[in-house]
Design a protein around this nucleic acid. Structure first.
Length: 803
RNA sequence: GCCGAAGUGGCGGAAUGGUAGACGCGACGGUCUCAAAAACCGUUGAGGGGAAACUCUCGUGUCGGUUCGACUCCGACCUUCGGCACCA
């Protein structure tokens, strides 16, 4: 009597045994090559849903696979625990963010444990605990000492609902990423990190193997532009503009300042002052979404003053308009309406001259209906006339530099990283403001600056910590005078920019990490996670590592050598979200069908990087398959001589090969289908020797072990093997044994399949061709026609070309 | 608007220049059963011809091209999804 496959009975049992036996605890071990396989840690949102499993189960499979291949594998897990949603949820439920978050951590930890992953839970990190954020603060101090952290009064994106400042990355189409409110602006003194200093190095991907898509997204985000900074003479002095089109310098007919530009009050004439002030006011009130709406026609105000274009000697009027951004370039643009669409629209609006300086092909001097941005022949440009614009661009740049009117310059779209948050639930910025000494960093020995548990954290637009006197009031570490603490907390991306370092030595309490252990494990060999972190987390982490390398505390350039982005799992054709009500929890499936079925099904849906649709019926196919394996292996096999294992051996080696290559490249779906085919074969196989059978079924279990760790462990034990299957070596294949001794040769006439013939794989070309030409089915198709040529593809086909 | 990915049976998908639809789901038929479920066996891209063994035609978003041969390579377009977007 075969015992039934009851995953509920075996999964918990093995999870306990693995934990008791410390099967997944990992230590540095120089006898084996190391492999650091990291999955992006989850945000402590409350529950683990199928999307978390989709991110974690496949990377666990890959990590297990690497371990069986002989690597010493570090595969840790932790929780990203600071941040706005925790605070918002806590406010709604009237419970403290710490309590709410730690409850979620506990809940999520136990849900994740049900997955049966090989996480070494001794290495868990939780970013909101003082023993962790102490080091987040320490990193801030290091950045400060290196001159990479600075404070600046700046107009910041502000969400009126969340009552907080947002980074540019958190503003989506002018809306708050979290709550969807329209973002407005506020002027606040805030902390920035000088990521722009690393813009050029961050564009260098030569040391890492990342998906093209992510590299392109980072490139676009960094947004390198090469051009010139050119000086114009305005009434109040020199004004610099940035342009990527120095070839259009003769076409400048006006100049536009960003409304908030500090020189604007000096440039506005008395009679224009009121109108100018009103426009600046309007701009500030207008939301980002309104301001950037492309359908809106260009607005602006003439300042009443003029500038001189030194290159052409022409006098041009100066305007302000909200289409010019203070934060990009110099905050001033030269208006070239003929060759820039935005300038063109502005010129139409204000009836400004449109001077064509680059003639499109077939240009007959007529008025343009839109800006011409392509290359062409220079006209109306003095000594540069008749040059192709590409040539003129260089000549003009040389000319401008020689005369001292300006210089070539490269600028970036990337801005410095704003890390100040006017919120409670984050790591406090370790700075003291002293009336005498000014900005004073908290000494390292005084870290952590603890988040006071009793602060009122409900949002008021002001930092909650500001209203907590016991926190604010302190003494200056330098002079001992009464002073105040910085009350802003840090962006949570600060916490996630170094967590992968902490896993290497999570218990270190006199430093953020043990340098030797760090050197042993870092960099991460394989990082996996969602593409939504392409330009934030992944860019910030790279910056962190480079900055720390330059301060001498790290010895490598990149945190993540290889990156793989999984796709999104959808339910009912839609992304899972609470508002849609389609959040699918794995727990029910786990208790009904087992974690192994859920794991395998998620990987079987389709290619991991493309995501897929969760389907309740689909998972039953996987459940059936595991049950078939169970019955097949625990049922044993009766067979009598004569035996012939040749086909079995070939199938075994082919399956090992396919599974090995596919898991290596994260093609789990095809690896699983290969294992299914092998199962189907074993079910029907006849005349197998007992030894051959044992060999084949053990191999099947070993290949299944990373995918379905529980059932494979159970069957491994039941077939009399030594604990544990997860410490066994990955099966090896012999290329020679994967070869077929017979192949099906396809016979085509003019590219159409007309016949198939089974031949020994050793067949030579002439034999194959002769055979093909003499097949009955083929003869009828070539009868009475001339044979032009016969194409032979070894072991594949013969194609007879007739006319 | 710009950048990127993807379009294949009823469904998820496989095949990266050589048998299109592996594997799985669903559906249909059968075995077992008083019956059902489960399990097992078989059929399953569309259309035509044939009593049948079989056989022919069409078929991978659309249109064109390269090739003996195209889901696969090239060109143009359409659709869907992701990202960026007044970046001078």
């Amino acid at each position: 009597m075969i015992p039934r496959y009851e995953p509920q009975k075996i999964e918990g049992k093995w999870q306990e045994r693995w934990a008791e036996g410390h099967l997944y605890e990992v230590l540095e071990d120089n006898s084996r090559p190391k492999w650091y396989e990291l999955t992006m840690f989850p945000y402590t949102s409350g529950d683990v849903h199928i999307g978390h499993w989709y991110a974690m189960a496949p990377s666990d499979v890959h990590a297990r696979f690497k371990r069986m291949q002989g690597y010493n594998v570090l595969h840790p897990m932790g929780f990203d625990a600071f941040g706005l949603p925790a605070e918002n949820a806590a406010i709604r439920r009237n419970i403290h963010p710490f309590e709410w978050t730690m409850k979620n951590v506990q809940n999520m930890r136990s849900q994740l444990k049900s997955m049966g992953a090989m996480y070494d839970w001794k290495r868990e990190v939780v970013t909101c605990l003082p023993e962790y954020y102490r080091w987040t603060q320490w990193f801030f101090l290091k950045l400060y000492q290196a001159g990479l952290a600075y404070q600046m009064e700046a107009p910041a994106n502000f969400c009126p609902t969340c009552q907080t400042v947002l980074a540019n990355e958190q503003v989506i189409n002018g809306l708050c990423e979290r709550c969807g409110s329209e973002v407005t602006h506020r002027k606040l003194s805030q902390w920035f990190l000088r990521i722009t200093r690393y813009a050029e190095e961050l564009l260098d991907f030569s040391r890492i193997e990342w998906p093209e898509k992510i590299k392109i997204m980072q490139e676009n985000w960094i947004g390198k532009s090469e051009g010139m900074e050119v000086s114009f003479s305005a009434d109040c002095g020199e004004v610099k503009v940035f342009t990527t089109r120095p070839d259009t310098l003769f076409g400048v007919t006006f100049m536009v300042f960003a409304p908030e530009h500090p020189l604007v009050p000096n440039l506005a004439t008395q009679d224009r002052l009121r109108e100018v002030e009103r426009y600046i006011d309007d701009t500030q009130k207008r939301s980002e979404i309104e301001r950037t709406s492309l359908s809106r026609s260009k607005s602006g105000v003439f300042l009443g003053s003029y500038a001189v274009n030194k290159v052409s000697g022409e006098r041009i009027p100066i305007f302000i308009s909200d289409y010019v951004l203070l934060t990009y370039g110099t905050g001033v643009v030269m208006g070239v309406p003929a060759h820039d669409q935005r300038d063109f629209e502005f010129a139409l609006q204000f009836s400004l001259p449109i001077k064509v300086v680059i003639a499109p092909l077939d240009y007959d001097g007529e008025d343009l209906t839109c800006a011409y941005t392509g290359p062409g022949m220079m006209i109306n440009s003095g000594q540069f006339d008749h040059l192709p614009s590409e040539v003129a661009r260089e000549r003009m740049s040389d000319f401008v530099e020689k005369r001292g009117y300006g210089e070539r310059k490269t600028i970036y779209h990337l801005r410095d990283w704003l890390i100040s948050r006017q919120r409670y639930w984050g790591a406090p910025i370790p700075i003291v403001h002293c009336p005498g000494c000014g900005v004073v960093p908290v000494p390292e020995k005084d870290l952590p600056v603890l988040l006071p548990p009793d602060a009122e954290f409900k949002p008021t637009g002001d930092s909650p910590l500001r209203r907590c006197p016991s926190f604010v009031n302190t003494v200056c570490p330098r002079c001992g005078a009464e002073a105040e603490r910085e009350t802003d907390t840090m962006d949570t991306f600060m916490c996630s920019s170094w967590y992968f370092l902490r896993y290497t030595s999570p218990d270190a309490d006199s430093c953020p990490f043990d340098p030797q252990k760090l050197a042993h494990w870092m960099p991460v060999d394989q990082y996996t996670g969602g593409a939504e972190h392409a330009v934030m987390h992944l860019l910030y982490s790279r910056f962190f590592v480079k900055a720390m390398r330059d301060t001498g505390i790290l010895g490598f350039d990149e945190p993540f050598l290889r990156l793989f982005n999984q796709g999104t799992i959808v339910v009912e054709h839609a992304k899972m979200s609470k508002s849609r009500g389609n959040v699918t929890a794995p727990d029910d499936y786990v208790s009904k069908l087992g974690a192994d079925s859920v794991r395998v099904y998620l990987m079987f849906i389709g290619p991991w990087d493309e995501g897929g649709e969760w389907n309740d019926q689909g998972i039953s196919g996987i459940s059936r398959w595991l049950k078939r394996i169970w019955n097949l292996i625990s049922g044993g096999r009766e067979s009598s001589p004569p035996y012939d294992d040749r086909r079995l051996i070939q199938m075994t080696h082919r399956t090992i090969k396919k599974t090995t290559l596919d898991i290596e490249r994260f093609h789990f779906n095809t690896a699983i289908s290969a294992l299914m085919e092998f199962t189907n074969y074993l079910q029907g196989a006849k005349g197998i020797s007992p030894e051959g059978w044992d060999e084949a079924t053990s191999t099947l279990l070993l290949l299944l072990a990373p995918l379905a760790p529980h059932i494979s462990e159970e069957l491994w034990e039941r077939t009399g093997h030594k604990y544990s299957i997860h410490t066994q070596a990955w099966p090896k294949y012999e290329e020679g044994l994967t070869q077929e001794d017979q192949v099906t040769l396809v016979v085509e006439v003019n590219g159409k399949v007309r016949d198939r013939v089974v031949v020994p794989s050793s067949i030579i070309e002439q034999e194959a061709k002769d055979l093909a030409l003499n097949r009955e089915k083929v003869k009828s198709h070539i009868q009475g026609r001339r044979i032009d040529r016969v194409i032979y593809v070894p072991k594949k086909l013969v194609n007879i070309v007739v006319s």
